[in-house]
């Protein structure tokens, strides 16, 4: 790692201020950032830890939604949403491994927007609102491609508001080495429709599969997916699976997610 300064503010305001310094970077749980720093692929002047900001931690009900502090760890989300949003709880319990889940945070994951991460699928399928120190961003506007989001420089995800669907499930088919999603599909049925978000598959990162959503809106059954397919062009092709394989998996995994949710 390159040398950097370390700061651990206790309020959002102080964190924002610290992040105003040139080349300062926010540190969530560090489960992706620290390995990246070890490879010397990032060169922050200062790392601003968000782990000391009490108001950014924890899960609480918020009307028909749940509000999750941006610095809440995966393990905390798993425990806190087991009853209120079981599909989200199960997703959180499948990220990384137990030790990673004790450090990694929802805000860190969403800010990083790895194309194979799990949380982006949950946020997009739930129609989440990404709350930052400056504004609120709808999930549909937030994810903007590989490792790219609507966040501005120095902007912090303070909270994530997840509407709780009537039925939901996250189905993850893992890449054998990293155990990230080779394809992960989050299906969420709301009173006014179905949202299907796919992670791991696309070169553009997480996306909504609108054809599946339309088909499932009328018939929330795995059979509704029959005959639908995503275009293999635009899928990720690598040593773990071709574009065609990923496109095929999107259909299979979506059906499984629907079956489990229905």
């Amino acid at each position: 790692m390159y040398e950097f300064e370390f700061e651990k503010p206790s309020t959002i305001a102080d964190a924002v201020k610290a992040l105003g310094e040139e080349d300062a970077q926010a540190l969530g749980g560090g489960q992706t950032l620290i390995p990246t720093l070890k490879q010397r692929l990032a060169m922050p002047s200062t790392l601003v830890s968000l782990s000391g900001i009490a108001e950014m931690r924890g899960v609480c009900p918020d009307g028909d939604a749940i509000a999750i502090g941006g610095a809440t760890t995966h393990a905390e989300v798993e425990a806190a949403t087991a009853d209120s949003y079981p599909a989200l709880s199960a997703l959180a319990g499948q990220i990384g491994d137990p030790a990673v889940r004790n450090r990694g945070t929802i805000g860190g994951s969403l800010a990083n927007n790895d194309p194979s991460a799990c949380y982006p699928a949950a946020a997009l399928a739930s129609g989440a609102t990404i709350v930052t120190n400056a504004r609120e961003i709808a999930a549909d506007d937030y994810f903007q491609g590989l490792f790219t989001t609507a966040l501005d420089e120095g902007e912090i995800i303070t909270n994530v508001r997840m509407p709780v669907p009537q039925a939901a499930h996250y189905e993850k088919f893992v890449q054998p080495a990293s155990r990230f999603a080779l394809v992960g599909v989050f299906v969420a049925r709301f009173a006014d429709g179905v949202r299907v978000a796919v992670t791991g598959a696309s070169e553009e990162g997480v996306f909504r599969w609108s054809e599946a959503e339309a088909a499932l809106a009328g018939n929330f059954d795995p059979a509704a997916i029959d005959g639908l397919s995503v275009d293999a062009e635009g899928m990720i092709g690598d040593l773990h699976g071709t574009k065609a394989y990923r496109a095929h998996l999107v259909g299979v995994i979506t059906k499984r997610a629907v079956a489990a949710a229905a």
Binding site: P176, A177, S178, D238, L239, H240
Partner: peptide, 11 residues
């Protein structure tokens, strides 16, 4: 080397 770490070399 495409399988250059445990992220791509499946142990």
């Amino acid at each position: 080397l495409l399988s250059a770490s445990f992220m791509d070399y499946a142990m």
